[in-house]
């Protein structure tokens, strides 16, 4: 599967990695093109994503019940190849939730696991208050650093859910084994829950134990979707372009392979 050799590399383009480079550039350029078109006013239509639409509803419910909102961006850091982007996506959703909560004057609690993500979360909430013209209402103690330990974080998170009984519990980001505990405890505390992750193994628990679930790449679309900005939405068209390539190559390749033609698979040697 990984025919890329890492020893004896010589200067210049690396053989075996060119298909990757071409693919990467294609997808990135396509997405840049759609963003460029959006600046000129051509924003693609986007389908509804129920889980994201439900965020407003969830916050509204919390306000009605007079309870706070809990919003988590996952437990990963910023640097790991597969989970870092999920954290960034989660923070995008957090920014939206913060803005909404400030608008309706509801307390927002953000549990944080990674020390280096804490300043970002704090900045997001403080900015939301500043932009709404009420910076004095910002309380840094609501951006709660819980613990770098996975289950230390979990036990505190559960404790807060049980004590504060938030009306909404929104979790978008990278989660591991704690996903089930958090989602079940949230349900037990009576929260309306929206959960999403691209960690495949955790999706089933979110599907079963939360009210709305964002599956896989929907979390990357989420921050673009909630922003409502043309440029961001347009970038999703790039995602669809990549999808089209993948599906096309898959179907064609397998058919050709069945017919005994190995043309496409040879591309992998580039």
């Amino acid at each position: 599967m990984f025919e890329v050799s890492q020893i004896n590399l010589s200067d210049g383009f690396v053989a075996g990695r060119m298909l990757g480079l071409v693919g990467l550039l294609l997808i990135m350029l396509a997405s840049a093109y759609f963003i460029y078109m959006a600046r000129k006013g051509k924003v693609p239509k986007i389908r509804r994503i129920a889980g994201i639409d439900a965020i407003d509803e969830a916050i509204g419910r919390a306000v009605e019940m007079g309870r706070p909102v809990m919003c988590s961006h996952g437990i990963a850091g910023l640097t790991e190849a597969t989970t870092g982007p999920q954290t960034i996506a989660g923070l995008g959703v957090t920014a939206y939730v913060a803005k909404k909560c400030v608008d309706v004057s509801t307390r927002l609690m953000i549990p944080v696991r990674q020390p280096n993500v804490w300043p970002i979360a704090a900045d997001i909430v403080e900015t939301a208050y500043r932009m709404a013209g009420k910076p004095q209402e910002y309380k840094s103690s609501d951006i709660m650093f819980l613990s770098t330990d996975q289950f230390g974080f979990t036990s505190s998170y559960i404790g807060i859910l049980m004590r504060e009984k938030p009306g909404a519990n929104i979790m978008v980001g990278a989660y591991w084994a704690e996903s089930m505990q958090l989602a079940t405890s949230g349900a037990r505390a009576g929260c309306i829950q929206i959960a999403g992750t691209a960690a495949v193994a955790q999706i089933p628990y979110f599907v079963l134990a939360s009210d709305y679930c964002l599956i896989g790449e929907e979390i990357y679309a989420a921050s673009a979707y909630v922003s409502g900005e043309g440029e961001q939405i347009a970038s999703l068209a790039g995602q669809d372009f990549g999808r089209l390539i993948a599906v096309g190559i898959m179907l064609l390749g397998a058919l050709l392979n069945t017919a005994g033609i190995k043309m496409i698979i040879d591309l992998w040697r580039w």
């Binding site: 896989g216 790449e217 993948a246």
Partner: peptide, 16 residues
């Protein structure tokens, strides 16, 4: 889902 997540991560990188 893995393929889709890869696409999402790439596009997120473009936005960033």
């Amino acid at each position: 889902v893995t393929i889709g997540a890869a696409l999402g991560a790439i596009i997120l990188a473009v936005r960033t």
